[in-house]
Amino acid sequence: MSTPTSTLIELNNLTKTYGQGSAAFQALKGINLKIDKGEFVSIMGPSGSGKSTLMNLLGCLDRPTTGAYRYEGIAVESLNSVQRSLLRRYALGFIFQGFNLLARTSAIENVELPLLYRGIKRAERHEMARRALAQVGLPDKERNTPAELSGGQQQRVAIARAIVTNPSTLFADEPTGNLDSQTTCEIMELLTQLNSERGITILMVTHEDDVAQYAKRTVRVIDGLIDHDQTHHRIAAQ
């Protein structure tokens, strides 16, 4: 595994402007941020603060207007859309508030989806997906479709899909936004475990303080700028 001090993500005066001319809106006004490998960072902020924009840029789903973004030394801002796709495919994993599983598709097929794009052979694909499902605690739900699973179980399938490719970073966009407090705890425990046991760097957007507490570091974004950046000891778990 990586040494805990090596830099994974480095943002340098990153800005993002939507629209043009008088209708232009600057969502990010110059973000400087450094994230090391193995960190668990929560990004907080009120709606419209730019935290989702920041997340999309970090997740290589979007390109910054100005500024530099280094991911493991790669200049992401100058990658074209195919290169960004490949970076997402090989290095990043995503989980979303709305789970975003394919409907009418079994859990195992959902988990296999990213492997399909990697061109991994059927038997191996199956085995990897099975292991990922076991790891998120759903070894017996392989054949169930999303409609047959609870919200917590669906999010577990989504996590399995995100980690099946063994990504270096996991992006979580309000992962517990649709879940009750009991399930929220379970999901957060799972993410904490993935972070500590597998060393996966986790970047999580949330607006709930108690969810943010699971992270080792909280970055607060207000009006397109980082308001404060605080490393803390976990109060929950352990």
Binding site: G59, L61, S81, V82, S85, L86, R88, R89, Y90, L92, G93, F94, N100, L101, L102, L113, P114, Y117, R118, R161, A162
Partner: peptide, 16 residues
């Protein structure tokens, strides 16, 4: 649309 979004997010290229 959402399915396409998921595919793109997990690393499918536009061409794929």
């Amino acid at each position: 649309t959402r399915e396409i979004g998921i595919r793109l997010a997990i690393g499918a290229t536009a061409k794929e």
